[in-house]
């Protein structure tokens, strides 16, 4: 079962994380294993979670507990790209809700939804540790955009919409 979901490449990526921890503590790699699986399949469904449990030799519930705790895991279908707007205090003081509204209009979706073409999901997020660059956006849980303006947002989302088309 797990071998179909956690194919060879994924397995070796997970193993690299397993090896960071002492022998027998492969449970420690749960967080990253889930992340790698999510990067591959975009969101996590039960078979994905079970595959991680099986691969790391853990009781399933251990994986469910973790997957439901951390906020970066997506449990519903999401688009190819995640656009997360920080709406914590410093960003709010600098117009984060304006950013959300702007993006909602631009992408023609409500926050939390995915564009019709399945490319972009818009979400709110909590403080990204970029408060001095408020308002801040994080794309795909990796790439930061700070001090965003209408213009920089345009520049930011164009490749997300167009790339690979």
């Amino acid at each position: 079962m797990s071998s179909q979901i956690i194919h060879e490449r994924l397995a070796s990526a997970i193993d690299q994380w397993v090896n960071k921890f002492p022998k027998g503590e492969q449970k420690s790699a749960t967080l990253m294993a889930l992340r790698l699986v999510q990067e591959e399949y975009r969101w996590l469904e039960q078979p994905h979670l079970d595959a991680v449990a099986e691969y790391l030799k853990l009781p399933k519930i251990d994986v469910y507990e973790v997957a439901s705790f951390y906020s970066m895991y997506q449990h519903q279908p999401v688009g190819k790209h995640l656009v997360k707007v920080c709406t914590s205090l410093s960003c709010c003081l600098n117009g984060a809700y304006g950013v959300v509204e702007y993006l909602e209009g631009k992408l023609n979706i409500q926050c939390g939804q995915t564009t019709k073409d399945g490319r972009i999901t818009l979400q709110e997020t909590e403080c990204l540790a970029a408060c001095a660059g408020a308002p801040a956006i994080c794309v795909d849980d990796k790439f930061y955009h700070e001090n965003v303006t209408a213009q920089t947002i345009e520049k930011m989302i164009r490749p997300l919409i167009e790339e690979g088309a």
Binding site: K20, E25, Q26, K27, S28, A29, T30, L31, M32, L34, R35, L58, D62, E65, V66, F69, Y70, S71, M72, Y73, E126, C127, D141
Partner: peptide, 24 residues
């Protein structure tokens, strides 16, 4: 090591739990 989205994981003992692959 990388986390997975949680504020409380910054609390030191929560971080230890997280490093052990558990809820923070």
């Amino acid at each position: 090591i990388l986390g997975a989205g949680s504020y409380i994981v910054g609390e030191e003992t929560a971080m230890l739990e997280s490093l052990e692959g558990k809820r923070a």
